[in-house]
Design a protein around this nucleic acid. Structure first.
Length: 208
DNA sequence: CGGACGATTCTCT
DNA sequence: GAGAATCGTCCGG
């Protein structure tokens, strides 16, 4: 199913960090979830820069989506940023892990895209320091793993994704995108079957 | 103020 | 595959 394809990095030689413009974040959430694949997720800290190509995303669609934190327009301290304009950072804590989302949907429509996996690109040594020595394929192949590797924390909540220190940069268009149901939401009724998970087919860093 | 609950990960078996 | 770890958020009392 996976673990067999070539990496994105091997498809070309060099990338520059060109943050996307604000316009990138406007439009349907399912489109944004697809468009984020192949983009770079970049985090700058005092320790240095770390980045990776986004290879897996999930869409969470506000009021209608029982699996979304903002289901039924539930507005709390945690979900507040989901109601803001698209392109903001929505971080939240899951057990002991921080998960990162790109806010989508125009102001007042609380949708978001969860970044579930990246392929390490820049700062791999730094990522290893943060995660501990381990096989490359385990470094960033999950939503909690990648935030730790890149140094993304709750301090990033509410920031914008089109400027440092945490931003999305242009990468390239993946060859083939696979689609399926989202992961880890068994108690969300029908919503658990919605095909709102997207990943780069064959990429070894996809979470599963 | 207490209790239930995860958009997870890691460690076994 | 199953089970534990582990803690902020949210909601009810």
């Amino acid at each position: 199913m996976k673990q067999t394809g070539k990496t994105l990095q091997s498809a070309s030689n060099s990338y520059s960090y060109k943050p996307v413009s604000d316009a990138f974040f406007h439009g349907p959430t399912l489109s944004l979830a697809r468009n984020l694949l192949g983009c770079l997720l970049v985090k700058e800290t005092e320790e240095g820069i770390a980045s990776g190509f986004i290879v897996e995303t999930e869409a969470y669609r506000g009021p209608l989506d029982r699996a979304a934190h903002s289901y039924n327009n539930r507005r709390t301290k945690r979900t507040e940023v989901m109601f803001a304009e698209p392109g903001r950072v929505y971080t939240y804590l899951m057990h002991t892990h921080c998960l990162v989302n790109v806010v989508s949907g125009e102001e007042g429509l609380p949708e978001a895209v969860l970044i579930r996996a990246v392929e390490p690109y820049d700062g791999i040594d730094l990522m290893m320091e943060r995660r501990g020595e381990m096989p490359m394929k385990n470094l960033t192949s999950g939503p909690g793993k990648l935030t730790k590797a890149l140094g993304i924390h709750m301090i990033d909540y509410g920031r914008r994704f089109d400027e440092p220190p945490l931003f999305i940069a242009h990468g390239f268009t993946p060859e083939k995108i696979a689609v399926g149901p989202r992961i880890g939401i068994p108690n969300s009724g029908e919503a658990k079957d919605y095909p709102w998970r997207f990943w780069v087919e064959g990429n070894p860093y996809v979470s599963r």
